[in-house]
Design a binder for these strands. Structure first.
Length: 276
DNA sequence: GCCCAGGGAATCG
DNA sequence: CGATTCCATGGG
């Protein structure tokens, strides 16, 4: 079990297993983290700018407090989930075992729901470098300036804008979807936080009401921000992996953790592709 | 069912 | 180098 200590604006978390910063922050689930020259990572989430570093099994979160850690980062980085137990449970299948071992440092983050929804709307039919660029312009133009960068804009702020305002993003046909999401969320028609802890299919159907949100974007939002770890986003990489590695269906032992296994498979496929 | 939208990145010839 | 392909969703 991890242990937590706080001192001088730094949270120290000891005994952390299965947590690799690069695997977790650069595996396609989050788009606003960057690596520093010393191997630490900096980024902004929930309106706060932090730097994360790691030495052996100890994680350091710089520029935070005990209250902020317990209110934000403890959940954000999924510190309370037993990843080694999950990997043990899914490893009764040899293929999953191999993939999970390869990707074992990935943690599925619990990000801000509205940021995650918008980010994956932007991600559709798109590649990661350009997704990052569009999100950066979104924050710089419509977020709030804080020490370290810009926060992700609120739904209310975006709902007040027009398509012409969003042209600066160069998001193409996705801009109108961002506006629809912002309006439904800021108007209270959809309360994203209420989708945490309810039936996954029901939460998914609610997200599908947003224009520009199909099954893939809905599942990414459920998995990366709304704590639904059985959500299983299927993009081209995963479809390819399912066909080639699993004959189309996940092993039964993986199903309770399908989303986490999805991340293991995704990372495995990507790295294999790049190293060919 | 098929094509297109609006781009940038990756891959190909 | 230029040409082609990739990509998730909704609308025509």
């Amino acid at each position: 079990m991890p242990e937590f200590f706080f001192k001088n604006g730094c949270a120290t978390i000891k005994n952390v297993d299965n947590f690799d910063l690069a695997q977790t922050l650069d595996c396609g689930q989050a788009f606003r983290w960057h690596e520093n020259s010393d191997g630490s990572w900096s980024g902004i989430a929930y309106g706060k700018y932090i730097t994360v570093s790691k030495k052996d099994n100890t994680v350091f979160i710089h520029n935070t407090t005990k209250d902020e850690f317990n209110g934000i980062w403890r959940t954000y980085f999924d510190f309370d989930r037993d990843y080694s137990g999950i990997i043990r449970a899914v490893s009764d299948n040899e293929t999953v075992k191999k993939v999970a071992r390869f990707s074992s440092g990935i943690r599925v983050l619990n990000q801000e729901p509205f940021e995650t929804l918008c980010s994956f709307i932007i991600s559709q039919n798109n590649n990661i470098p350009r997704i990052k660029g569009i999100i950066e312009r979104l924050c710089e133009n419509f977020g709030e300036k804080i020490n370290g960068g810009y926060t992700f804009p609120t739904a209310g702020r975006l709902a007040s804008l027009t398509l012409e305002d969003l042209a600066v993003l160069r998001a193409g046909f996705r801009a109108k979807y961002i506006l629809d999401a912002a309006k439904k969320v800021s108007g209270g028609e959809i309360v994203l936080e209420d989708l945490i802890g309810i039936d996954t299919a029901k939460a998914r159907n609610t997200l599908l009401k947003i224009n520009g949100v199909g099954p893939k974007v809905a599942d990414c939002t459920l998995l990366f921000s709304l704590h639904h770890i059985t959500a299983f986003p299927q993009d081209v990489w995963i479809k390819k992996a399912m066909a080639e590695l699993f004959n189309g269906t996940l092993p039964e032992s993986s199903k309770p953790f399908a989303g986490i296994v999805q991340q293991y498979i995704f990372y495995y496929m990507r790295v294999c592709e790049y190293s060919r």
